[in-house]
Computed example of a mutant assay.
Amino acid sequence: MARELKLQNLWVIMKHILRSSNAKGKELCVQKTADRLGYGCARALFGQNWSTILKELSANCNHKFTVIAECFEKQCSFLLAQRLKRATQVMAFYNRLYGEKLIDQVGNSLLRRFHKKSLFCVLAATLFSWEENKIGDDVLNRCVYDMVHIQELVQKTRSQVVDGSCPWEKVIDRPHLIVWRRPLEFNSSLFQYKVYGKFDDVSARAFFNTQVDLEFWKQWDKLSEDIRIIDKHEESGTEVVHWTSKFPYPMYRRDYVYVRRYKVDNSNKLMAVYSQTVNHPICPVQDNVVRVTEFQSALVIKPYSDFDENGLEYVLTYYDDPQTTFPSVCYNWMATTGVPEFVDKLHKASKMMHERTQKGYRPAYYQNQNQNSHTTFTLNQTQYA
């Protein structure tokens, strides 16, 4: 009875406290009650020294967790070192088996995977040496020698004329088109071609713009799958161009990576465009395209009177290695038929360009062309390229 009376009195007191306290007092009361229950549970489990025991237990747990984390870190580092060592051994083993070819294939694979990413392109472009690959004024000056001395070659009536140590063989002789060829010094199975022609119904500027305007080039040359500028050296005006061209089935497509530079000389009334193959890290070799590694082209244009009036003569000297073996019959066909067909397409495209410029069309490079037109070529009448 006494215990029940005590509990009843305690209950009455608690009810009185709850009714008389405000909301804040209730929260404090509940909090104190919870703290007392927690202290009571801790004292019941660990005894009177429960606070000291909990601190020691917490410190012990922290120490053990720290030791476990350090062991885990050392184990991960050990495994990583082992994996790197194993990978190095594997690469060294395959390198001994296959030489540097394997390393090149792996590098090209990585380049093909990341070459479309803008950040990688910027980093790759920094690896390209413009000092070694830019086209200098001396190269363009050598190009114009062909125009200076072309009449000397045109007046030759023999089928073969001696030009230095290599004979030029005349393969086409028409009123407005003459084509010569000679074997290359570094590959006698390939030929270097020299084309001399005239157009009476096209202006020199339209003919020049047709050669330089790459966006227009993709429209008139149906064999060009893609052609674009991938890098440029602002100081010299040298550009890096990537050109992908279709080849007859079942041969693979061919692509060219080359540097080019053009120049307009108002004083001497000459225009020149020079191109030559180069290696650039932004455009690695692809598996489904054959890379042409030997290509060189030098075009010189001279108007009859003015750049914007009809009438011009031009000299084109070029060679390329299509990375395939053609019979001699095919080379003869390309020289006698392929070159005139290409010149005809170029003539029609130049007339289209002339009509566009008459309507106000200006290529994207037109402003830069005018800025560079004050420069002149250094002509030496006693030299011949």
Score class of each variant (00 low, 15 high):
residue 5 L to S: 11
residue 6 K to T: 14
residue 7 L to S: 13
residue 10 L to K: 09
residue 16 H to S: 15
residue 17 I to R: 15
residue 18 L to N: 14
residue 21 S to E: 10
residue 25 G to N: 05
residue 27 E to T: 02
residue 29 C to Q: 08
residue 33 T to R: 07
residue 33 T to S: 15
residue 35 D to K: 14
residue 37 L to S: 05
residue 51 S to W: 14
residue 51 S to V: 15
residue 51 S to C: 12
residue 66 T to I: 11
residue 82 Q to T: 11
residue 88 T to H: 15
residue 93 F to A: 10
residue 94 Y to A: 07
residue 96 R to H: 09
residue 96 R to D: 09
residue 103 I to P: 02
residue 105 Q to K: 13
residue 106 V to C: 09
residue 107 G to K: 07
residue 108 N to E: 05
residue 109 S to T: 08
residue 111 L to G: 04
residue 113 R to E: 12
residue 120 F to Q: 00
residue 121 C to K: 11
residue 141 N to V: 01
residue 145 Y to A: 10
residue 149 H to Q: 10
residue 150 I to V: 12
residue 154 V to T: 04
residue 154 V to D: 02
residue 159 S to T: 10
residue 161 V to M: 10
residue 162 V to L: 08
residue 166 C to W: 04
residue 172 I to V: 15
residue 173 D to E: 14
residue 174 R to D: 04
residue 183 P to E: 06
residue 186 F to T: 07
residue 190 L to K: 06
residue 201 D to I: 05
residue 205 R to H: 08
residue 208 F to R: 00
residue 224 S to C: 05
residue 226 D to R: 06
residue 227 I to Y: 00
residue 229 I to Y: 01
residue 231 D to P: 01
residue 232 K to E: 12
residue 232 K to N: 06
residue 234 E to H: 09
residue 238 T to G: 02
residue 240 V to G: 04
residue 243 W to K: 09
residue 248 P to R: 03
residue 252 Y to S: 11
residue 255 D to F: 03
residue 258 Y to H: 02
residue 259 V to D: 06
residue 264 V to R: 02
residue 265 D to P: 03
residue 267 S to M: 07
residue 269 K to E: 03
residue 271 M to Q: 03
residue 273 V to L: 12
residue 274 Y to R: 04
residue 284 P to G: 04
residue 289 V to G: 01
residue 291 R to V: 01
residue 293 T to I: 08
residue 304 Y to V: 06
residue 307 F to Y: 05
residue 308 D to W: 00
residue 308 D to G: 01
residue 310 N to S: 07
residue 320 D to F: 15
residue 327 P to H: 00
residue 328 S to T: 07
residue 330 C to H: 05
residue 331 Y to R: 11
residue 334 M to T: 05
residue 342 F to Y: 11
residue 344 D to M: 08
residue 345 K to G: 03
residue 349 A to C: 01
residue 349 A to H: 02
residue 354 H to A: 13
residue 359 K to H: 12
residue 361 Y to G: 02
residue 363 P to R: 02
residue 365 Y to I: 10
residue 368 N to S: 13
residue 369 Q to P: 07
residue 370 N to W: 11
residue 372 N to C: 13
residue 374 H to I: 03
residue 375 T to N: 10
residue 377 F to V: 00
residue 379 L to K: 09
residue 381 Q to L: 15
